[in-house]
Design a protein around this nucleic acid. Structure first.
Length: 418
RNA sequence: GGAGGGGUGGCCGAGUGGUUGAAGGCAGUGGUCUUGAAAACCACCGUGCGCAAGCACCGCAGGUUCGAAUCCUGUCCCCUCCGCCA
């Protein structure tokens, strides 16, 4: 959520910034109008309440005629309050809903653009391998090795599901443990969070209302399945005020992620690149506002370290305004080279959400000069499906075995290949 | 799932429908005293909105009333017992 006071002070700045995010200004206009009318009505009601409070203090000490008069006056005040309060509630609700729709303005240095084609490559690390034989893509290789079964998954569960089997499961567990060790070393506390959350957590993180169509809901309950543990990690400190001395607070969540992938029909349909269910180790930080950019770079560094250790060629991308999503002010993606697609594709991502989620969540810290909103950041340590694709495509050998990168071998009992 | 009990400030804990934003204690901050510390004593000590006056907040949301922490309804959470269960 954006800061209403700042919006009021300088609406044009917000209009321009959100325009860069390809966001129209109708909601801004609605917020400004609703805000003005809420403030007007609120002033009137607060005056009435002040009069009532004053009378309330007097009533017990008055008697007879005077008391009757005050009671009659207050009766009228009560009637006016009773008729106006629902109006105020409704106006405040309209204001709140409009405010919740407004995305976080992008940071000034974020490249302009509509879609991911406008993202800016900051650097490339590693070289795609040249081979004397043809590389199979992850699905052909996975099926040949008995590692991936999407056909039976379609029968049991629908499209965009997969059975991961055999050594690929060992690889998943190794990747999880490997990534966990890395993030623990960077100061993140491991967490296995709930993957079911209330609606409030979805609103708090900014997934609602913007991405509601992406989220699975449990029927007849206030219960939603997270598309990333970011949601439950962020919600860990909702409505809390953390002591400044605890900051930064860093968590690494390991969880299954569930996404409806609505509106992606026909896109990335092959294999396990885009599926409804995958496991992920996710970093999440709560920090002081002044520290959030450094924290962002730290998360990026951890992500790059992991991909480097896995010996996967990648590029770092500065995500453009149109591709940021609602909560992020700045975002970097890591795109791994995927020989099967002959393209760099997103495997991890890290965002600085500034105070946008914190304001919605009510996540603050207490410093010397009182309380203030925290900044929140998130980043992928390892997203299993896509990392597996990158690993088995980049490291496959002519005999269809897969070389295990050195740094990962300790997590696979010292094996050098699968 | 069934039957009970309970949610008050950082913590513990009072609270009769009316100067209660809320007694008291602990913790914390500042001070007096002390060579220093402890103890003792004094003062301060919740959050949000607002320039301010002020308004709101006793899990949350409604309701009754001139007036609600206090009465009513719903809801969330916690505890105990029974059932079920990895």
């Amino acid at each position: 959520m954006i800061d209403l006071k700042s919006l009021r002070a300088d609406p044009e700045q917000f209009r321009a910034a959100l325009g860069r995010k390809r966001y129209g200004s109708e909601d801004l206009d609605q917020v400004l109008a609703a805000d003005a009318s809420v403030r007007r009505l609120k002033a009137e009601l607060e005056e009435l309440r002040a009069a009532r409070n004053a009378a309330s203090r007097r009533i017990p000490r008055t008697t007879g005629k005077e008391k009757a008069e005050v009671l009659a006056d207050m009766k009228r005040v009560a009637i006016r309050l009773k008729e106006a309060e629902p109006d105020l509630r409704q106006q405040e609700e309209e204001l709140r809903l409009a405010l919740l729709r407004i995305p976080n303005p992008p940071h000034g240095d974020v490249p302009d653009g509509v879609g991911d084609d406008a993202n800016v490559v900051l650097r490339k690390v590693g070289e795609p391998r040249r081979t004397s034989f043809d590389l199979l893509d992850h699905l052909d290789l996975g099926e040949a090795r008995g590692w991936i079964d999407v056909k039976r998954a379609a029968r049991s569960s629908g499209s965009r599901f997969a059975y991961l089997m055999g050594e690929l499961v060992e690889l998943e567990l190794a990747l999880v443990r490997f990534a966990m060790d890395r993030v623990i070393a960077a100061g993140f506390k491991p967490v296995v969070p709930p993957i079911v959350v209330r609606e409030a957590a979805m609103y708090g993180t900014g997934f609602f209302p913007a991405d509601r169509n992406e989220i699975y809901k449990i029927e007849d309950e206030d219960a939603y399945l997270v598309g990333t543990s970011e949601v439950s990690l962020a919600a860990l400190h909702m409505e809390e005020t953390l002591p400044e001395s605890d900051l930064p607070v860093r968590y690494a969540g390991f969880s299954t992620c569930l996404r409806k992938e609505a509106g992606t029909y026909g896109k990335d349909t092959r294999g396990i690149f885009r599926v409804h269910q995958f496991d992920k180790v996710e970093m999440f930080s709560f920090c002081k506002p002044a520290a959030s950019h450094d924290e962002h770079l730290l998360i990026l560094e951890v992500e790059e370290g992991i991909l480097s250790s896995l010996e996967i060629p990648y590029q770092v991308v500065h995500v453009c305004t149109g591709d940021l999503g609602a909560p992020a002010a700045r975002k970097y993606d890591l795109e791994a080279w995927m020989p099967g697609q002959a393209a760099f594709r997103e495997v991890t991502s890290c965002s600085n959400c500034t105070d946008y989620q914190a304001r919605r969540l009510g996540a603050r810290f207490r410093g010397k000069d009182g309380t203030a909103l925290l900044h929140t950041l998130n980043g992928t340590a390892v997203a299993i499906g896509r990392t597996i694709i990158a690993l088995i495509e980049n490291h496959q050998q002519e005999d269809r075995s897969v070389r295990i990168p050195t740094d990962l071998r300790p997590y696979l009992g010292g094996r050098q290949q699968l």
